[in-house]
Computed example of a mutant assay.
Amino acid sequence: MYLLRRIKTLITESSQRRDYKTAVISSNNNELSTTFDPQKPPPEISEREKEILTECWKIVQQDVAKVGIITFVGLFETHPEVHEAFMSFRAENTSELEYNAILRAHALRVMGTVDKCIYRLDNREKLRDLMTELGIRHKNYSVKIEFIDLMGPQFISSIKPHLVAMWTDEHEKAWENLFKLMSYYIRKGMCSI
């Protein structure tokens, strides 16, 4: 199994160097390996999922700063390599980041982006443009493309406690699909440079 994963990684690295139009995402911690093909259509979100996202977001917004901080601290704890990518607070201990003003500001920007995406689900072009530009900016910051898919699961685990009374598999799927859509356009932007 290890040898198969190692061969896959070597092929992936070679493919990335040859062709930036296809990005291969992999996470050692989750043993996730997905190929991004920008020629494929973006993920779809159903009308019911839009309703769920809007309903949930109204509740999450009441504690949006806290959710943002919990999301990033959790991400840094489960994926220390992501913490290392942030120059502003790379040297800080993860347990102390909860009080870091720079992290708080970044977390609020991310929550603002989620907000914009939820309210642009009916205007796919605006959502696409917003997230593609975000991908270009992240590429310019030298963010590794494999980090992009890590945010969704961490965000979902951060909002569940706020929505425990209403949370179902349908809610989980709606949020997963939103982050798949966001990630699709971010990766597309990162691959366009």
Rank of each mutant, 00 (worst) to 15 (best):
Y2H: 12
Y2I: 10
L4Y: 01
R5H: 10
R5S: 07
R6P: 00
R6F: 07
I7Q: 08
K8D: 10
K8L: 11
L10W: 05
I11F: 06
T12F: 01
T12S: 07
S15W: 11
R17K: 11
R17E: 15
R18V: 01
D19K: 13
V24N: 05
S27D: 13
N28D: 06
N28K: 12
N29W: 04
N30P: 00
N30F: 05
E31D: 05
S33V: 07
S33Q: 08
F36D: 04
D37K: 07
K40T: 10
P41K: 10
P42I: 03
P42M: 07
P42T: 08
P43V: 11
P43A: 15
S46I: 15
S46C: 14
E47D: 15
E47W: 14
K50T: 10
K50C: 14
E51T: 15
L53R: 01
L53T: 09
V60L: 01
V60N: 00
D63W: 03
V64C: 09
A65K: 12
V67H: 00
V67T: 09
I69K: 00
T71P: 02
T71K: 03
G74V: 10
F76M: 13
E77K: 06
H79P: 00
E81R: 02
H83M: 13
S88Q: 12
F89Y: 09
E92W: 06
N93K: 14
N93D: 10
S95A: 12
S95W: 11
L97H: 05
L97V: 11
Y99I: 03
Y99C: 04
Y99P: 04
N100R: 10
I102Y: 04
A105C: 10
A105R: 15
H106Q: 04
H106A: 08
L108E: 08
R109Y: 06
R109S: 11
R109K: 12
V110E: 07
V114E: 05
D115Y: 09
K116W: 12
C117K: 00
I118Q: 04
Y119L: 05
Y119S: 05
L121S: 03
D122W: 12
K126I: 10
K126N: 14
L127M: 09
D129S: 05
E133V: 02
H138L: 01
N140F: 02
V143W: 05
V143F: 09
E146N: 10
F147Y: 14
F147D: 08
I148D: 02
L150Y: 03
L150F: 03
P153Y: 09
F155S: 05
I159K: 01
H162D: 13
H162M: 14
V164F: 12
A165C: 12
W167G: 15
H171R: 11
E172M: 12
E172C: 07
E172D: 14
K173W: 11
W175Y: 11
E176Q: 12
E176D: 04
N177K: 15
L178N: 03
K180P: 02
L181M: 06
S183V: 06
Y184G: 00
Y185G: 02
I186R: 00
I186K: 00
I186T: 06
K188W: 03
K188M: 01
G189I: 01
S192N: 11
S192I: 08
